[in-house]
Simulated assay, not measured.
Amino acid sequence: MPSEQETANALPSNFDVAGLKNAFNNPTQAFQMLDKNNDGKVTKEDLEILLTQFGIQGMAAKFMAKLIFKKLDADKSGTIEPSDLVHADGILTSLLKMKKTGQSA
């Protein structure tokens, strides 16, 4: 799996960070948006679909979904719960800062 820096570097220059940050602003609403089949679970694949919708394509979406999922899945259950999404904004901000500065946050 790529490092955080490699994942940050893979972010496209035209990435809609404001839109994605707004999507995660309300964890309950973000969870409902991610949980397409209403089974009460959000997986890495669900997260990858969301990232693709915000302009992150291909391997960058896969790498970022894995990294974000790993950081959000606090109880290591293999799924993300609404309470886990509270930290999503900070993770995205950290990755963007890494992309701009070229160094780990």
Rank of each mutant, 00 (worst) to 15 (best):
A23H: 10
K76D: 12
F54I: 01
G55D: 10
F69N: 10
S77P: 02
I91G: 04
K70C: 01
N14Y: 07
P2K: 15
G102V: 06
T52R: 15
L20P: 05
E48F: 00
I68D: 02
A105Q: 04
S3Q: 02
I68K: 10
A30C: 14
I80V: 15
T79R: 05
I49G: 06
F54P: 00
A105L: 02
N25H: 06
G78P: 02
N38H: 11
K66E: 15
Q29G: 01
A61E: 03
A18F: 09
L51Q: 00
F15Y: 14
K66Y: 08
P27G: 11
F63V: 00
I49C: 04
N9L: 13
L67K: 10
M64G: 03
D89H: 11
I68Y: 02
K62R: 13
I49R: 14
A30M: 13
Q29A: 14
F69T: 08
A23K: 07
T79A: 09
K36A: 15
V42H: 03
A61V: 11
A74L: 13
G102P: 07
F24S: 02
A74R: 11
E48H: 01
N37H: 12
Q53F: 06
A61T: 12
L11D: 03
G58D: 15
V86P: 00
A88Y: 06
A60M: 02
A61F: 03
T93G: 11
L85S: 11
Q32L: 10
A105D: 10
L11C: 04
F54L: 00
E45W: 00
N14G: 11
M59Q: 15
Q57K: 15
V86A: 06
Q32P: 01
K99L: 04
L51P: 00
M33T: 12
K70N: 13
M64P: 00
A65V: 12
Q5T: 05
N37I: 08
S77M: 13
K99W: 02
T7M: 04
K36M: 10
L72M: 06
D84S: 12
S3P: 02
A60N: 09
S13R: 09
S94H: 08
F15Q: 12
F69A: 06
G90Q: 11
Q103R: 15
P27E: 12
A60C: 04
K62S: 14
S83M: 13
S77I: 05
N22T: 11
T101G: 02
A23I: 01
I91P: 00
P82G: 10
M1Y: 08
L47Y: 04
P12S: 09
I56H: 04
K62V: 14
Q32I: 06
G55E: 08
A60D: 12
P82Q: 03
A60I: 07
